[in-house]
Design a protein around this nucleic acid. Structure first.
Length: 108
DNA sequence: GGCGTGACTTGAA
DNA sequence: ATTCAAGCCACGC
């Protein structure tokens, strides 16, 4: 067991650290973990986060698009969650993304 | 054990 | 400015 789920665990941890009403990108987390080129693994980790307390809906791609919404239960569930937090989302794209962007390497 | 895919990003043409 | 391509690591079959 065990094994270094460090990467995954760390991803979940950072995702949980995302403040309410804020969002971040896969690359930002990956970069924080030291794998800026491995943003895909972050997404893969999120896939494994199914059933965890990881607010994957707060994690979007670099453009602020809800790329992973397709992986959620519903079709607009992810958008609903974001809007529920005060984030304006239109057409799977987050508005004021630049303002709501939360960078762990910058904030932490 | 090998090949392909995947919730992405960055860089170069 | 936009479009194309490559890179990264892990998991599934």
């Amino acid at each position: 067991m065990a094994k270094s789920d460090n990467f995954f665990e760390r991803t979940y941890e950072v995702a949980r650290l995302i403040p309410y009403g804020r969002i971040t990108s896969y690359g930002a987390i990956a970069k924080y973990l030291g794998a800026a080129r491995s943003a895909r693994m972050v997404g893969w980790a999120m896939n494994n986060s199914s059933g965890k307390d990881v607010p994957a809906h707060r994690v979007v791609n670099r453009k602020g698009i809800l790329t992973g919404k397709h992986h959620f239960d519903g079709t607009n569930l992810m958008q609903q969650l974001l809007e529920s937090e005060g984030i304006e989302v239109i057409d799977n794209q987050i508005q004021d993304f630049d303002t709501l962007f939360w960078d762990p390497t910058q904030e932490l």
